[in-house]
Write a protein that binds this DNA or RNA. Structure first.
Lengths: 254, 254
DNA sequence: TCCCTCGTTCGGCAATATCGAACAGAGGTA
DNA sequence: TACCTCTGTTCGATATTGCCGAACGAGGGA
């Protein structure tokens, strides 16, 4: 992994900057943020615009992400093998549990949601595919951190930021939780990421029994938790779904 | 729009190639498809991989799109002003019409779906956000082609490929349809894209009354069409939704 | 086993991206 | 209105940078 193409790295930095700042950015802001000359940044933006990766508001001249990224992101989902295998199983999981189901994979320092099945009722829900969630506070993330050394390293290198009052923030508590997750084979998030929301997750393993993602259900804490503990039938449903997907991927029987 | 950065254009071509071919591609295939030396292509792929835009299967060495694209595509949706304004209105549209609702924008030679509300029942549905649909056969596309000169040019430059037996394939028929859509202010797709499926769409206009997208509902032809014509209350619902979104964008009253 | 093809690395050439400075135009201020 | 200060954009010279041909090692198929 030696020589990389400078202009591509810089273009990627521009895209990531535009993805971070939640509204349009001006050329000068972008140039100074990345630390490049205005003319250089303009060249990058001009090309990215021609390719559809960024768009420019003709009125203000400011730049934002382009539609081509949405199209390519969708193509990524089409190719995603894990997601394809998990489609039917997560659908069943949402149906049988009555809660919304998620499929996540490790990406950079977080969990990337690659599939999301709405809770089977008429409530208004937003799709979270493509969104990132923290590793240390969510059930999806804990499972990955417990079984995937790469994910664990990402947690160790980062901060255990407190998102709610219940988020585990000390390294000792988190390590204890990791031991527990490994022993049980599943993880829970009891209002550690969102107030009033709990979730349960289990790992998906490939043919070499390495974790490639995790499956979870998420719902109001009153429905998911009973008397301080996650309802056993929900745990069983999540674990069975994860096992089914793993089996589809070629993992041996358990 | 003069000088563009060569390596960026080539990297974009690689990504587009990977998005087109629906499975993993080898380095040699990619290099010969784009018409570059293997070493050059490898440099592009190496950088794209480091940035997360492509991933390499360690077993076969083949390349596919990367997760970062999904994340960036999701960020694009977050910034999308039209989509943000349309969220509540399309939700109401799906609810009142009982069919699934779509919001599309012109992108390259097609319609890019930027929002999709499921039909309010328990049926299994796949989310189509990020997918592309043809301009000349869908209601979403016809509306754009009728009111947006850029979209019309895209249709004129392309082929009127027959997707079903009912797709309009002659330039004369299509021009007549355009006149009709402009006169009515809405468009229909009666099994011209999918067998057994019909849809109705109306344009969303910005403050300068230029079309920036279109809103549609789609459903089984038996439910949408009655005696050869689209049910009037569905047309009214779609047009009202489009007007509401347009008003939110600052378009004057009608 | 051989052999072909794969992905990868290396090094020299020159095409290419970079940068500073100057340009035009919009927005705001006095 | 006139000024001024930002904006995004273009231009041209420099040498840095990415490009390509060829060679390498490994894997799979016959």
């Amino acid at each position: 992994m030696a020589r990389t193409i400078q202009s591509l790295e810089r273009a990627a930095a521009v895209l990531r900057l535009l993805a971070g700042g939640d509204r349009r950015l001006g050329l000068s802001d972008i140039a100074s943020s990345i630390g490049l000359a205005k003319a250089t940044t303009h060249g990058l933006l001009r090309t990215l615009q021609q390719e559809g990766f960024v768009e420019q508001d003709p009125r203000s001249g400011k730049y934002q992400l382009g539609a081509e990224l949405l199209r390519l992101g969708n193509s990524y989902l089409d190719v995603h093998e894990l997601r394809a295998r998990a489609l039917v199983w997560t659908d069943d999981l949402a149906r049988s549990s009555g809660e919304s189901a998620y499929l996540g994979v490790l990406h950079q320092q977080g969990v990337l949601i690659v599939h999301h099945v709405f809770r089977p009722d008429d409530s208004r829900q937003v799709l979270e595919v493509g969104a990132m969630q923290p590793l240390h506070s969510t059930a999806l993330g804990k499972v990955l951190a417990a079984f995937d050394p790469v994910a664990r390293n990402a947690v160790d290198d980062g901060e255990l930021t407190a998102i709610t009052g219940r988020t585990l923030t000390s390294r000792e508590d988190f390590e204890r939780e990791m031991v527990r997750v490994r022993a049980l084979g599943w993880a829970a998030d009891l209002e550690e990421t969102w107030e009033g929301v709990a979730s349960v997750a289990a790992p998906v393993l490939d043919r070499r029994r390495m974790p490639v993602g995790s499956v979870a259900i998420t719902g109001a804490v009153e429905r998911v938790v009973d008397d301080g503990a996650v309802r056993p039938h929900l745990v069983a449903a999540v674990r069975e779904c994860a096992r089914a997907v793993s089996r589809d991927l070629g993992a041996g029987r358990f």
